[in-house]
Design a protein around this nucleic acid. Structure first.
Lengths: 211, 211
DNA sequence: AGTTAAGCGGACCGCTGGTCCGTATCGTAC
DNA sequence: GTACGATACGGACCAGCGGTCCGCTTAACT
């Protein structure tokens, strides 16, 4: 049983940090920065190896795996860091992302925020979803957005299947689809946002009130 | 330039087969059968290696790569074989899949056929989309369905973005999502079909006529 | 039966994610 | 400032993967 400590102390749940050594924290940041940069430079995340990241960060390979568990853990940690602001805005922020927003406005806002994030961090999102081994649906990151979206959808009358609808709407913003459209097909950013908004509106149906 | 012959003669485009040796054809079938079986047995397609397939088929590894180019080629060939009937039905078959069907009926029928196929061949679809290296959107198999769906959607009035809509609807039937819902979450088959149909109907909007 | 080339298979290669363990460094108690 | 235990470090190391090579086998045609 070689697992006395939690394997991925990426972000300690309790604010009481269990004492992190200074060099460890510094290395952690260096690794995240190096990984971000490398993923951004190379087109396909598959061409960036763990050894590359370690070298770019100026640390040994073992440091990567000690700090993040495995490749997926590193990518998840990086992704989580970048997405945190949006996540927080959706959880407790003001409209249009926050929970007080009426659903006909909030759902498109959430999806648009997600889409913009994936456009701005294409490489990262691609690396996250294209991890290969585990499906994106296993990550609790997905569960979070799904729950948020489903909850908002459930407040819309005459929408019989909020659970599936949330899945389907999220599927429309999947990283590889975004990459295909914005990258390969060259669809302009604003056009893509408009199309997603249009699609979303169609799914939600007409708002009850002026909204 | 070590490439005098086409690298992946999976299905010769011209019906004039360029003379295939008997044992080669036999081996090809054995490989496809073995691969299908192994993918079905193991849960995750990632755990099935090329060596496994070769051993199960009773051939050498080189035979796999000679016949199919690489891992992706093998999976694509297998997938194509299984999907061919549906594909043909969509291309030239009778309603509700064939091209003569009015779009308000055909689009749901196409998506439902795709969903049923992925439910019936979950392992295979998962292996195809989860190839890892290349995104599913690069495969011309995807381009085919997208074009078919977009064409049908374009015939619906007041649907401003048939291209994106086709992508988004197809995204709702992605193999890993289907696997997540039908497998992990245990959503019953008929319920999933009904949900997809409901969602599709919402996207298409009301039919102009009794349809 | 003889000839030829297509087909065969398994040893082999390069590379990857992931691990091990002796060593260097940090944090602390004095 | 120094001594000391705990913690983290790093690069050699490992197992397993997709993919290739080449000497041998065998189908096909005469």
């Amino acid at each position: 049983m070689p697992d006395p400590t939690p394997p991925t102390p990426s972000t300690p749940p309790t604010p009481s940090a269990p004492k992190a050594r200074a060099d460890a924290a510094r290395n952690r940041e260096a690794v995240l920065a190096a990984a971000d940069r490398l993923f951004a430079e190379h087109g396909s995340p598959g061409t960036v190896t763990m050894a590359d990241i370690a070298a770019a960060a100026g640390v040994g390979k073992a440091t990567l795996f000690r700090g993040f568990g495995d490749r997926t853990g590193l990518i998840r940690a990086l992704h989580e860091t970048r997405l945190a602001p949006i996540r927080q805005a959706a959880e407790e922020g003001p409209p249009p992302l926050g929970p007080t927003t009426p659903p006909h406005e909030r759902v498109p806002a959430l999806l648009d925020a997600l889409l913009r994030f994936k456009l701005d961090n294409r490489h990262l999102s691609l690396a996250l979803e294209g991890t290969g081994n585990g499906s994106p649906y296993a990550a609790d990151h997905y569960a979070h957005w799904h729950t948020t979206l489903r909850t908002a959808l459930a407040r819309i009358p005459d929408l019989p299947t909020p659970d599936f609808t949330a899945h389907a709407l999220l599927a429309a913003t999947r990283a590889d689809l975004v990459e295909h459209l914005a990258g390969t097909e060259g669809v302009p950013r604003e056009q893509l946002r408009a199309q997603l908004a249009e699609f979303t509106a169609r799914v939600l149906g007409p708002a009850v009130r002026g909204d």
